[in-house]
Design a protein around this nucleic acid. Sequence first.
DNA 1: TGTACATCAGTGAACGCGCGTTCACTGATGTAC
DNA 2: TGTACATCAGTGAACGCGCGTTCACTGATGTAC
Lengths: 210, 210
Amino acid sequence: MKTNTVLSDLKEKEKLARRDIIIAAAEKEFTTKPFPKVTMRDIAKRAGVSPALIYRHFPDQQSLFAEAFMRGISGIFDKIFVTIDRSSDGAIEQVIADFIEYFTRNDQYFQMMMNFFLGGSVDPTLFEKLTRIEREILGHFDLIFIKMNAEGNVRRHSHTLFAALTGIVATFRNHPEKNMEQVLMHRQRIAQNLSSLLRKISTSPPAVQS
Amino acid sequence: MKTNTVLSDLKEKEKLARRDIIIAAAEKEFTTKPFPKVTMRDIAKRAGVSPALIYRHFPDQQSLFAEAFMRGISGIFDKIFVTIDRSSDGAIEQVIADFIEYFTRNDQYFQMMMNFFLGGSVDPTLFEKLTRIEREILGHFDLIFIKMNAEGNVRRHSHTLFAALTGIVATFRNHPEKNMEQVLMHRQRIAQNLSSLLRKISTSPPAVQS
DNA sequence: TGTACATCAGTGAACGCGCGTTCACTGATGTAC
DNA sequence: TGTACATCAGTGAACGCGCGTTCACTGATGTAC
């Protein structure tokens, strides 16, 4: 019985590993071509499995995409959240710069995010997850404005910040003759402008604590 | 000979009218369903013609979409440009509110805009047109900041404004339980917040001129 | 220890559908003589 | 005025392709007796 359990545990692990390989393959595919062009065949090929196998792990394409998206998106925001939590003044410049840099270097996640925003009909489970992430982001953005003693409605500032950051990445994209570093620089300049705008709403010089 | 010319003029007009009907049908279709779901068959059906006929007027789908987009988008910006030109202080609150309202009530054009931004590869002619429009928009936004005596780099403020407006429309979308008026209200609140942020960069009270 | 059967990850090929686009054709109008 | 031919807007059906998804099957491993 014991051996039995150990063996089936191994089986289980193997299965999870395969699942992992598929998600990783999907993430990798997203880096090579625009989001809507990635196909199940592509992913299967990269993962070294048959397309049919994917459907043993995920009910459909959207579920796989969602999982790949979640995995990628959590990375950056966890990092940003730490920056906010540790800072005494909200570190808005740092947060803004990190957001822009991450989404510039990983445009695939931005494209996915836009896709979910614009696509309209996502299934309720996914919608739920996205809403939770959004709330988490806004909650942490609130902290920035609280720490910097912002005047006015804090949550509204958070919305404004999130919208502006998203807009910067959405509107300034790869002109044919520009490479990624140039695009990044351009976005960062606009982002800095945004930073200094937002700094102005602080009612007092940053409160330096501990 | 004269009759001849008049007749062929009529023919020509008729042809243009048909072309017009097709574009109008396309615009109408975009209002009924999300942008990527609109098909050539749908448009043909609404226009009351055969799908094949569309290809007598437009080389391909993208050209038709582009033309429908241009037509729709010019409307609002012409109106906004007039507001800017006529105002003494740039009327930034009005411009922001109009932008948000228009794109909320005509989400199809926003979706098209995002599509062009995110889609990546558009043909050079279309790219050229889009770039021209963008320059025109930024040029007029510059006027706003000039009129309000903004401190700092004017063009950079214009970029920031455009990005933020786009971001507001992109990020706050139809939650299943909210209707358009509620979405509009929400967006307008964020937009007002943006307005008052931007007002702060004026170095002096608005210059009131004749 | 050996044998018949069950389970289940994994597969390549095929299904089915949607959709952009083209084909082969029609019929009305214009033109040449 | 009549006739043969050219032009061209317009059409419904068909082509071709891509892609998500499923099917029918294989083969390895586990289980019962």
